[in-house]
Design a protein around this nucleic acid. Structure first.
Lengths: 348, 348
DNA sequence: AGAAGTCACGAAAACGTTTTCGTGTTAAAA
DNA sequence: TTTTAACACGAAAACGTTTTCGTGACTTCT
């Protein structure tokens, strides 16, 4: 089991100096053609590749970006990663991932692990716990040490950095307008408690759409789920609450749900109650997921373009990393990704 | 924007040598209590953390593992990653990902990028293209340079390394036996072309189950899809071929599909043809996906325990990394993860 | 008082690169 | 023949650590 070959070994073998080998391999004018050929042939034979770690140390640059997300078994986040990876690779960077698992402390630990020289910058989406505790010291400390951060999706205005977000407000508004155009008179909203900025904006979009069409929002048509519970428990509670919602409001003929699972559950409950989708109730979800496409009926959704978000975030971050010469400008931008309404069978 | 503080800066500031600072921070007996306290206080104040890159270079160890998969927007693979990350983190390692996108050349490039010192070992699942071309030089070269590899799911026996695989054969066999127990007389198999080892084993399990129950396998009940096409095209072709299958074999009362999409499509086609699932046709899929759980009817599946695979792979790899002292033994093991049949509504 | 031993610290090497600067040799110019 | 210039290469520093070894200043023992 031979270790990887180094410049030093090549130098010794060919009886030249390390400098000469290094220069020869980089085709320096300083080195004679003879020597260059000799060195290059030898290096090729032994499949020499410069050691990345040594280069990172020397250049104080790792060409690696860290990405920290709450959860990886999730279509939205994995699509974002795909986008990041795509752009990162094409621009010569690697991607290293950390999962916070929605926990504040794991988020902090993961960031600290990576911030000590392992990466050149972060792309991240905050954990729910962080959003609740509103403790952002780890972000600010990281940035104050010169490490750029790009946040996506779950962001807060308190943190000054580049951001890539979905146009939650207009996405929701357009979806609800679609329902209104399709003659829905009583549109329910199924959402989460709104400590997550994202949920809040979608609720606002829902309200705005109603108001612009002279429909008075009714509190009892809005169902706010507590999504901090265990998944299975959550699912059961979700369905029973939706059933309750339908039963107390028989006039409901449209549902806008802030995620895929809620929308699917709404359809399931509706069917269980003998309602036809889309004839009796039309449903729209907010998601990039895979369930929508394959459910029956398939679900009309607001597409978030997750991969595009990842791509944009990666470009923003790498631009910042490579342009830190004009550092003191500190211009941060927030890129808003427009949504698309993908019409399927759950609407008319 | 202050850079991260280094030992050198602390040494200069406190007017001691770098060695003294290093030792003081590691609580060496050599250093006087006074000096230690002074140094530690200063380091804490400036939030000193050792530079990972420098440590990696010095120790010739990165505490990072590389994971290369064909696709990240895929429940199976993202669950594996979650398992790897979980174990890696708990054992003090980071995870860096590379996506091959099912392409041979991207797999090679990604491996080369990471193999040059960035990581201590690989966990990977081969791309379809690599399986087809049967070109494994990059794996062998990497291993010959002392970098351990653990393969999972898509493996080939030609490569000598640790492996973690699903018990595809018995998983399939049990599933088909379940259908037989449930009184299915004519069981169809929907699978892929079998250059992927995985598909071959599942087909064998299907055949074995039939034979053990004195059922003669019929070639026309086996549908082999070409899955190298574009996703949308594939989907359409899939459905038309399944429809064809049902039409030419009206006696079909059971379907075993090697993945989630095929199973769902089978149910969709069945419904379209007026067949009830599970009364007329029972369906079982092979997957860890999310569609099965939320489809209507929900799908009975063979669970692969993807996360467990990731965890096992990570343990195997880290064990190998940390025990390379007894290197010349070269004992490779193949861990087989048992499957579970998760019964839902698509079977009786 | 001299020898021996302890204490507290510093110098330097090593990990694998790249790059700046210096230098010895040779050929061309004066 | 001497000066100059080009050429081809090597020494050394730097990136940030850890660790081995050496050493000066005290203390203690005889």
């Amino acid at each position: 089991m031979k270790r990887k070959i180094t410049l030093k070994q090549i130098a010794k073998e060919l009886d030249v100096s390390i400098s000469t080998v290094s220069k020869a391999l980089r085709n320096s004018e300083e080195i004679s053609l003879d020597t260059k050929q000799k060195v290059q042939a030898f290096a090729k034979l032994y499949n020499y590749r410069p050691n990345n770690i040594a280069l990172s140390l020397k250049n104080r640059k790792t060409n690696t970006i860290g990405i920290i997300i709450p959860e990886i078994v999730h279509h939205f986040f994995s699509k974002v990663i795909r986008g990041v990876e795509l752009v990162a690779n094409s621009r010569g960077y690697n991607v290293i991932i950390g999962l916070s698992n929605e926990s504040f402390s794991k988020e902090v630990i993961n960031m600290e692990m990576l911030a000590n020289g392992s990466i050149d910058g972060f792309i991240l989406s905050m954990s729910k716990e962080t959003l609740q505790q509103q403790d952002y010291h780890h972000f600010n400390e990281t940035m104050s040490q010169g490490m750029p951060i790009v946040m996506f999706d779950r962001v807060v205005s308190d943190i000054k950095c580049d951001k890539v977000i979905v146009d939650d407000f207009n996405g929701a508004k357009n979806a609800v307008e679609k329902l209104i155009e399709n003659n829905c008179k009583s549109i329910a909203l199924i959402t989460t408690r709104d400590y997550v900025s994202v949920g809040k904006l979608r609720t606002q979009g829902y309200l705005e759409a109603l108001q612009e069409h002279k429909i008075t929002p009714e509190a009892e048509l809005i169902l706010k789920m507590d999504d901090t519970m265990d998944y299975e428990v959550h699912l059961e509670k979700l369905e029973s609450e939706i059933e309750q919602l339908f039963k107390s409001n028989e006039k409901i003929d449209g549902v806008f749900a802030v995620n895929e699972l809620y929308a699917l559950s709404a359809m399931k409950v509706a069917r269980k109650m003998g309602l036809n989708v889309p004839d009796d109730v039309q449903v729209i979800g907010f998601t990039d997921g895979v369930l929508s496409k394959h459910s029956t009926p398939s679900l009309t959704t607001v597409s978030q373009h997750a991969q595009q978000m990842g791509e944009k975030a990666a470009h923003l971050l790498i631009d910042k990393i490579e342009n830190d010469f004009n550092e003191e400008e500190e211009q941060f931008q927030t890129v808003v990704i427009a949504t698309d309404l993908i019409e399927r069978e759950s609407t008319k």
